[in-house]
Computed example of a mutant assay.
Amino acid sequence: MSTVIHQPRVAWDGARAFVRAATGPRFSAFADEVHDLLGPEICSAFIETRDQLLTESARTGGDRRAFDLEAGRWRVRLEELLRSRPELSGAVQDLTSRGFES
């Protein structure tokens, strides 16, 4: 029996987890896992997300809009990744569960 994976849902859950992990205490470990599982290009985007979120948080005093905007960007990025490389959906799901632990 095969499992049907709903890629938009995987992308949305992943996006929320990635944004949470970007400013979490396990950022470095999570970034290493992103690099290992999804590659250097996605890891670079993840590091940029952290930089943007920290900059915006300092500028605005923690306004949630920057987090929401980054989550939207990650949703699109992960949907595109899963569309072109569906075999990575298990890796995205693993990272998602780790991201919510951060």
Rank of each mutant, 00 (worst) to 15 (best):
M1F: 10
M1G: 14
M1N: 13
S2H: 05
S2N: 09
V4H: 12
V4D: 05
I5Y: 15
I5L: 13
H6M: 12
Q7M: 12
P8T: 04
P8R: 03
R9T: 15
R9W: 11
V10G: 00
V10C: 02
A11I: 02
A11N: 00
W12Y: 10
D13G: 09
D13Q: 12
D13F: 14
D13E: 15
G14K: 03
A15V: 07
R16T: 10
A17G: 09
F18W: 10
V19E: 05
R20A: 01
R20V: 01
A21M: 06
A21W: 03
A22F: 08
A22G: 03
T23C: 14
P25C: 11
R26H: 07
S28C: 06
S28P: 00
A29S: 09
F30R: 00
A31N: 08
A31E: 09
D32F: 06
E33P: 00
E33L: 09
E33C: 04
V34Y: 00
V34R: 01
H35W: 02
H35R: 14
D36R: 14
G39S: 07
G39H: 07
P40Q: 08
I42Q: 01
I42C: 01
I42L: 15
C43K: 14
C43Y: 02
S44K: 11
F46D: 05
I47H: 04
I47N: 09
I47V: 15
I47K: 13
E48P: 02
E48Y: 13
R50N: 15
R50L: 08
D51I: 11
Q52L: 12
L53E: 03
L53Y: 08
L53G: 07
L54W: 09
L54G: 00
L54V: 14
L54A: 06
T55V: 13
T55N: 04
T55C: 00
E56K: 11
E56N: 10
E56H: 12
E56L: 03
S57M: 12
S57T: 14
S57W: 13
R59K: 03
R59D: 05
R59V: 01
T60C: 06
G61F: 11
G61A: 07
G62L: 03
R64P: 15
A66R: 06
F67W: 09
D68R: 10
D68S: 10
L69A: 11
L69M: 11
E70Q: 13
E70Y: 01
A71P: 02
G72Y: 03
G72M: 06
G72K: 04
W74M: 08
R75H: 13
R75T: 07
R75S: 05
V76C: 05
R77W: 00
R77N: 06
R77T: 13
R77I: 01
L78D: 04
L78H: 03
L81S: 01
L82M: 10
R83I: 08
R83T: 15
S84I: 05
R85W: 04
E87R: 13
E87L: 10
L88V: 15
L88Y: 13
S89T: 06
G90P: 08
G90H: 08
A91D: 12
A91C: 09
V92P: 00
V92D: 09
V92A: 04
Q93T: 14
D94L: 11
D94S: 14
L95S: 08
T96W: 01
G99N: 04
G99C: 07
G99Q: 05
G99K: 08
F100N: 07
F100G: 09
E101T: 10
E101W: 11
E101R: 11
E101N: 01
